[in-house]
Design a binder for these strands. Structure first.
Length: 939
RNA sequence: GCAGGGGUUCCAGAGCCUGGUCAAAUGGGCAGGACUUAAGAUCCUGUGGCUUAGUGCCUACGAGGGUUCGAAUCCCUCCCCCUGCACCA
């Protein structure tokens, strides 16, 4: 089967038929978007998961006779495109190779020096190489980007509305900042940065150690440990600086001085002081007011804190091991003129009592973990974290800790810090927990922005309204719906503009600020209504004034022309949005702000109706990296076929669970598609009488339609695809095996089957619709099948189960007798037994004594009263399974299946009634016959 | 720390809300067989243990308790794993 040409063929047909284009009409509407992707490079198979769900859902809704709007766009704002352009400009080999690997020629790559070409290139790749190739029925006329002029007008309007509602506030903010590039995002995906994505922004306490006319500054996260200080660590390889700050003089690392400057402190560098010059001297430790020695060590990083570290070897693994190392290192001590005796005399001071630790937690954990040197950074980090955690939660200050004795560490930490600051012995500064390097190579610092604009998501009224709205929404999965109110509560004000070489919309109240990329993508489903008109040239961006958007979105004012009127009509028809679909990474940022902005700006009738969250596709090393390692989309399409991937996403697990990409599994789904195709092909060739198995098939198909429909209605893609691709296939397989061959039944069932496949695997569904069923229409425009109208009864299933049970019973006996039988005899039970079963399963509930009474009161059954109790007990087990089924004629059913049995088993089968006086029954098996469990004799 | 999710049979993964038809769907793997020149294709059969002419019993759904006639499913305690946490969308 040539998947590739099938895909191309039907994609073309769909486009010709324009079934992707949506205009208002008199049908009910359904509007879905997926959270549009940032333009950050080629996408991999992980990204296609959620997008595929979007297309499956919208195709389903379309077949349910909804008028469906499914637009898409690009999130172009931010740093990505500029970063790529810069790299090309700088001749970055890796980046150039990346494009070469993707088949681009030198000239095109060269053109990427202009970020606009980068954007245009990826717009094209995403839309045409990914989405279109995946068969998505996106309304391409609405394609937009966050950099389209109209879109920017829209965003500016949105911010004016926020301002009018007092939801924009200005206050100081400490943000990550690159001196070259401006604000950067520090996050594990390392979009903006080269290194340090896991760094946390920490507020360090700066301890001031009196040292001559100035202070040595040591940064710490554990101010409460001042009582355990034994010495100061200076790194002899680092050059420190003496700075004038306020009316004091501090000694810190250069990086620290830099940080302080960025954090709004008035800093003037006075002179440089090599670290080795500090070693051997003493300083006055704050809090304990004791002179302590300054000792050499190599772990203090000038980029972290102040580059100087106060040593608490009892509770800090780094300090402990550094001290131990030094004590052993005669040569080092000699080099700095230290007195080895005095160094060795330094004793650990017990200060905190933590659960599971004795006097010196640091010493204990270092020994327990077998850490032998201060260069074993990984283990030391782990140890530090462990001690920090245990100390914080369970620690109690010991009696030598002054007025804090007996206090819990959790409280002492803040108390000590506060007191030291008040006494002028400490200060604070923000620092990253590890060095952060910008893409440009510079160290990222934390900068104070005194007049940062925020969106006031903490606004109590807004939060409350949003929380109230959540229960009204359809949110998939349910757990997220329960989580959302607490996320909305927790959600704080969020910086919404920034300065720097960023792409984005100018902030309407101060154009030197650019609106940051999360804030400009919260209300955008509304813009897809307008974007079509912008793209068609029917409205110019200049025309998109405040008046325009007020009219279209809020119904305020009057239309200036027909187009305005029409756009408003469109908006009123399509809005609100039914589903916003996005990955789980959006749970705590995008989705909450999406809800809150709608709630803040639009009237209640336009608030979003639903959210669908999908989880990720994982590679072997965790989340699939955007930078490589994962399978790129284009290659995957070739290898697996689009439909196989769509089915894989649908069926391999619930959408709300991470899945692990495994190409063998995807290939299995490709096999499954082929198998179903072949099955349908073989069935359509059959012809013959209508039999009871046809009724059975229709009955089961009916159930599959009901189940799959129910599943789809509740967005349970996994269950639906299971019913359709495996449940139905299994029944068709059995039908065929049982000798089913009625043309009309087959055509009817296949037609429904293929329709149901269509949302999931549209290409192969179209192909089957045409080549197997010889239809001239598009299955994509058909209606989803309704359950068949025939009267069905559960007895159809009961009967068929009888046949398959008898078959597997015969097989079981075959195994036990350990020889190939030559014939089999089946004895169906006597009439009275069948009658008794019928009486039992017609009961509401299984109650032994009531049933016995009912049976015993029957004149016909009365005579068997001795056999009844055992009989009832045995049938009790089947009660639920057979409850309410109509009676079946076992003899007839089995007799009609003798050919089937012969085919399956390879020998003759005779069916007798237990009561038949002429039956062949050499070993008296017939008496064992029970309802739905005939006796069997093998010879 | 704050918030959330989860531990199911060889693997993946349903079931759990609404307790009994659950030795537990489905897909894979594996074993055996069929068809084939052949197959990664397709089709059958099997896949906890013991036992048995189609049966029955035991052990099972992280661990331990509890509720119940009855628990993978409800309640409690404990252990372990995972995820997100804010100028990345």
């Amino acid at each position: 089967m040539d998947f590739k040409s099938i895909e191309a063929k039907w994609q073309e047909e769909w486009e010709k038929a324009k079934i992707n284009e949506a205009e208002p009409n008199d049908k009910d509407k359904y509007y879905l978007i997926f959270a549009y992707p940032g333009i950050s490079g080629y996408l991999h198979v992980g990204h296609m998961r959620g997008y595929s769900y979007s297309d499956i859902i919208t195709r389903y809704k379309r077949m349910r006779n909804f008028n469906v709007l499914f637009p898409a766009g690009f999130h172009a704002t931010g740093i990505h495109a500029v970063a790529i352009a810069n790299k090309i400009k700088n001749g970055d080999k890796e980046m150039i190779q990346y494009f070469k690997d993707n088949g681009l020629d030198e000239k095109t790559i060269e053109s990427f020096k202009d970020y606009r070409n980068v954007l245009n290139y990826f717009y094209d790749v995403y839309a045409n190489e990914y989405w279109k190739k995946f068969g998505f029925l996106i309304d391409w006329r609405r394609l937009t980007s966050t950099l389209h002029p109209g879109y920017q007008k829209f965003i500016q309007w949105q911010f004016r509305k926020l301002m009018q509602k007092n939801l924009l506030v200005q206050k100081p903010y400490y943000g990550a900042f690159c001196p070259n590039c401006g604000p950067v995002a520090v996050d594990p995906s390392e979009t903006d940065i080269k290194k340090g994505g896991n760094a946390e922004k920490l507020e360090f306490t700066l301890l001031k150690f009196k040292f001559g006319d100035s202070y040595l500054i040591a940064a710490t996260l554990r101010p409460e440990t001042v009582y355990g200080q034994t010495n100061m660590w200076a790194n002899p390889e680092v050059t420190y600086v003496k700075i004038a700050i306020g009316d004091e003089k501090w000694i810190v690392s250069k990086e620290c001085a830099e940080n302080l400057k960025y954090q709004g402190r008035d800093v003037k560098v006075l002179e440089e002081i090599p670290g080795k010059d500090l070693v051997g001297k003493t300083c006055l430790a704050p809090g304990i007011e004791r002179e302590i020695p300054i000792l050499p060590s190599y772990f203090p990083d000038p980029a972290v804190g102040s580059g100087l570290v106060t040593s608490v070897p009892s509770d800090a693994p780094y300090d402990y091991i550094a001290l131990e190392d030094l004590k052993k290192d005669e040569e080092l001590m000699r080099r700095f003129g230290l007195d080895p005796e005095r160094v060795r005399a330094i004793k650990l001071i017990p200060i905190i009592k933590s659960k599971g630790y004795d006097e010196f937690p640091a010493k204990e954990i270092v020994e327990r973990m077998g850490i032998t040197s201060q260069h074993d950074v990984e283990k030391l980090e782990q140890a530090t974290q462990e001690i920090y955690k245990v100390g914080f939660h369970t620690g109690i200050m010991r009696e030598n800790c002054g007025k804090y004795a007996g206090m819990r560490v959790e409280e002492a930490k803040d108390a000590v810090k506060k007191d030291l600051i008040e006494q002028g012995k400490a200060d604070t500064m923000y620092t990253f927990s590890e060095p952060v390097i910008c893409r440009c190579g510079r160290n990222v610092v934390i900068k104070l922005i005194p007049n940062q604009w925020f969106i006031k998501y903490s606004d109590p009224d807004l939060t409350e309204k949003a929380k109230q709205w959540v229960p009204e929404m359809t949110i998939i999965p349910e757990e997220y719906k329960e989580q959302l109110p607490s996320i909305l509560d927790w959600f704080d004000d969020r910086a919404c503009v920034r300065q720097g070489s960023w792409l984005g919309t100018p902030f309407p109240f101060d154009e030197k600020w650019i609106i940051e990329p999360i804030a400009d993508s919260t209300l955008y489903p509304a813009y897809y209504i307008v974007s079509k008109y912008e793209n068609e040239g029917k409205i110019k961006p200049e025309e998109m004034t405040e008046e325009f958007f007020d009219y279209v979105f809020l119904g305020i004012g009057e239309p200036k022309n027909e187009t305005w009127k029409q756009i408003k009509e469109d908006f009123d028809y399509w809005y609100p949005l039914d589903i916003n679909l996005g990955g789980k990474e959006h749970k705590t940022v995008h989705f909450p702000v999406f809800i809150m902005n709608h709630v803040a700006i639009l009237p209640g009738t336009k608030w979003p109706r639903g959210i669908f969250v999908n989880w990720w596709v994982m590679g072997k090393a965790g989340k699939m990296s955007k930078k490589g390692g994962a399978e790129p989309v284009t290659k995957a399409i070739e290898k697996y076929s689009v439909d196989a991937m769509r089915l894989y996403y649908s069926h391999v697990a619930s959408p709300h669970q991470d899945i692990f990409w495994d190409e063998n599994i995807v290939l299995k789904y490709k096999d499954a598609l082929r198998r179903n195709y072949m099955l349908a092909e073989s069935l359509i060739k059959l012809s013959g009488e209508k039999q009871y198995i046809d009724q059975w098939l229709l009955y089961n198909m009916n159930k599959h339609i009901e189940k799959a429909t129910d599943a789809m209605e509740s967005y349970d893609i996994r269950t639906a695809s299971d019913e359709i691709f495996y449940g139905i296939a299994r029944d068709l397989q059995w039908y065929k095996r049982r000798g089913g061959k009625h043309k009309e039944t087959i055509a009817k069932v296949l037609s429904a089957w293929i329709k149901m496949m269509c949302p999931f695997t549209p290409h192969i569904a179209e192909e089957m619709w045409h080549t197997i069923l010889k239809n001239g229409t598009l299955v994509s425009t058909e209606n989803w099948p309704e359950p068949f109208e025939e009267e069905f009864d559960k007895s159809l299933d009961v009967a068929e189960k009888l046949v398959s049970d008898v078959l597997s019973d015969i097989r079981a006996i075959e195994k036990l007798v350990k020889k190939k039988p030559t014939k089999a005899c089946i004895y169906t039970c006597a009439e009275w037994k069948a009658k008794a079963l019928q009486k039992i399963i017609s009961q509401e509930t299984f109650d032994f004594s009531t049933i016995m009474k009912t049976l015993a009161s029957d004149p016909e059954l009365k005579q068997y009263v001795k056999q009844l109790p055992g009989f009832v007990k045995e049938l009790g087990r089947k009660f639920i399974q057979y409850k309410a089924a109509k009676p079946i004629n076992e003899y007839e059913i089995l007799s009609s299946a003798t050919d089937f049995f012969k085919n399956e088993l390879g020998y003759d089968i005779s069916v007798y009634k237990e009561t038949d006086p002429n039956k062949y029954d050499p070993s008296n098996k017939s008496a064992k016959a029970m309802p739905l469990k005939p006796a069997i004799y093998l010879e």
